[in-house]
């Protein structure tokens, strides 16, 4: 871990301004991913701006019947919120399917959106990785890629977005609110927040330098039955091979988003129209043009079968 200066931020705008004018600065909140990566010098900030004391830890109802989740709301608190459990159960289910109780107690809403891939080549500084070191190559292609992406990949990167919470937020059409260094704010649809790797896989998302997430808002509840089915090799404390977030209405219509499949939460709105026809029809559209490797081709079948299980349960 490189040496770094440490400052506690006093307000979101000040934090953003400081970050913009300090080369090598990063925000730190829960720290559960950033410190992990700093220990391996995959992340090498020279200045950490601690945003933990900012008053961004509340969950409030919005005027249009949704929820505004402060960036610093801990995963545990978000999952445990009575309104979330009642109206956005898919979100609670996604959060509690991730990590461990200890990690969820620290991890924040914003930080969780920003967690980086678990690709083992990204995690090993001796190996080439375009995400870690642009232009160095991708060792995962042709390597051990069982966990990695099957769709939306590029010749530069086949990393997967590893999180669970964001899959549910994508399903719910959440909006990410930010403040920029100049004090202005913006709203980013979650669909536009995470990126596909393309030829710039070092960029995970569309945040600009110094831009700080202040909240995530959820539109008004969708009703229906909520599911988050996460499939993994061990029963807990593991990243998803595949996960399926779904909200299914009584008439069989609904929404579905997938985790573990791509560099971002994978939702194809056009595929959702096929939900009443079943998992195969939906998956066919959702994963058209998939580019799996030998190691991870099973994910396509697995995603379809997991969706089938969800739809089966929705009917039952």
């Amino acid at each position: 871990m490189k040496a770094f200066e440490y400052t506690r931020a006093s307000s979101p705008a000040d934090a953003a301004a400081l970050a913009a004018k300090t080369p090598g600065a990063r925000f730190i909140a829960g720290g559960t991913n950033l410190l992990d990566l700093m220990k391996l010098e995959i992340e090498t900030p020279t200045h950490l701006i601690d945003v933990n004391k900012l008053a961004l830890d509340r969950i409030e109802e919005t005027s249009d019947g949704g929820l505004r989740i402060g960036a610093l709301v801990r995963n545990t608190d978000l999952a445990a919120d009575k309104r979330v459990r009642r109206d956005y159960a898919v979100l609670t289910r996604a959060i509690v399917a991730g990590a461990s109780g200890q990690l969820r107690n620290k991890a924040t809403t914003a930080g969780n959106l920003l967690q980086r891939t678990r690709c083992p080549y990204f995690y090993d500084p001796n190996q080439p990785c375009n995400k870690r070191k642009p232009g160095s190559g991708c060792a995962a292609i042709g390597g051990f890629s069982r966990q990695l992406a099957v769709i939306g990949t590029s010749k530069a990167c086949i990393a997967t977005y590893p999180g669970d919470m964001a899959i549910a937020m994508r399903l719910l059409d959440a909006t990410v609110e930010t403040v920029k260094p100049d004090g202005s704010t913006r709203k980013i649809a979650i669909a536009d927040f995470h990126r596909l790797p393309g030829d710039t896989p070092h960029l995970d998302n569309t945040l600009q330098t110094g831009e700080l997430i202040t909240a995530v808002t959820l539109p008004k509840p969708l009703g229906g039955k909520h599911f988050y089915h996460k499939v993994r090799d061990r029963a807990s404390y593991a990243f998803a091979l595949v996960s399926v977030a779904a909200v299914v209405q009584k008439d069989g219509t609904g929404r579905v988003a997938f985790g573990g499949m791509a560099h971002k939460p994978w939702r194809v709105e056009a595929a959702e129209a096929a939900l009443p026809k079943g998992a195969a029809a939906t998956a066919k559209i959702a994963f058209a043009g998939a580019t799996p490797t030998h190691d991870n081709a099973f994910k396509l079948q697995l995603a379809e079968r997991t969706l089938a299980a969800v739809l089966h349960e929705a009917r039952g």
């Binding site: 080439p128 160095s136 190559g137 292609i141």
Partner: peptide, 18 residues
């Protein structure tokens, strides 16, 4: 995987003394 072979991956770049 010659394409994946690092051009200069194993060696850390030296930086100025901290």
């Amino acid at each position: 995987a010659a394409t994946a072979m690092p051009a200069s991956a194993s060696s850390k770049e030296p930086s100025a003394p901290m």
